[in-house]
Amino acid sequence: MFDRLIELWPEIVLALAQTGTMLIVSIPLAILLGTPLGILLYGIGPTGLHHRPRLHRVLDGTVNVIRSFPFLILLIAIIPITRFIVGSSIGTAAVIVPLTINAIPYFARFVEQNLSQLDGGVVEAARSMGASRGQIIRDVLLVEARPALVTSITIMTVSFISYSAMAGLVGGGGIGDFAIRYGYYRYETDIMIAAIVLLVVIVQIVQVSGSRLSRSLDKRL
């Protein structure tokens, strides 16, 4: 088995790099775009600073629709959009589009929940100090939600490592695809197990470092 592993090593490295690329692009993009969307959802929601019931319903519904698409179906359904954005509907770059589209509302929901779980007293205090809406978001809400947001990013990253395994379907590669190709199609069970062990290790590293960072940011003791 070790001979075979060494033989396949370049392919494993390539698969790891592909998974890495998918996550390194889609997760930050999801944070960048999902955060404002989440803030908006919170802000116009029932406990927000600017309650807009109708707009909230529309946005809330849209987020739910995208989130309830099974990833596999989304992957195929948006092929035209993917082709428009990255010029191709296959390959690693092509997987990043559906991953990101799925991750944005996913993270926005996390942001919304993390913000609405904060104690309203701090917002009240900020208002009494003459803070603007932007200041309340930046200097109060996001500061108090920081540890929870880090936890959310960790959960999202772990989920998307598993989603990225479906990338093989559109030739996106990645370590999950590697495991499926060798284990499922070629019956090389030990190679598949090795790939899965690698996935478990990656997930552990993400989880442990995420939890540690979140704990160090949380000053509630």
């Binding site: 007293g121 208002r127 003459g130 803070a131 500061v143 940011l217 000053k219």
Partner: peptide
């Protein structure tokens, strides 16, 4: 103008309302 006026009116709360992470 109201925000400016509020800088001249302090408020103290029963449950303090401090930011835990600062």
């Amino acid at each position: 103008q109201l925000r400016t006026a509020r800088h001249g009116i302090g408020m103290v709360f029963q449950h303090f309302n401090l930011l835990n992470n600062l």
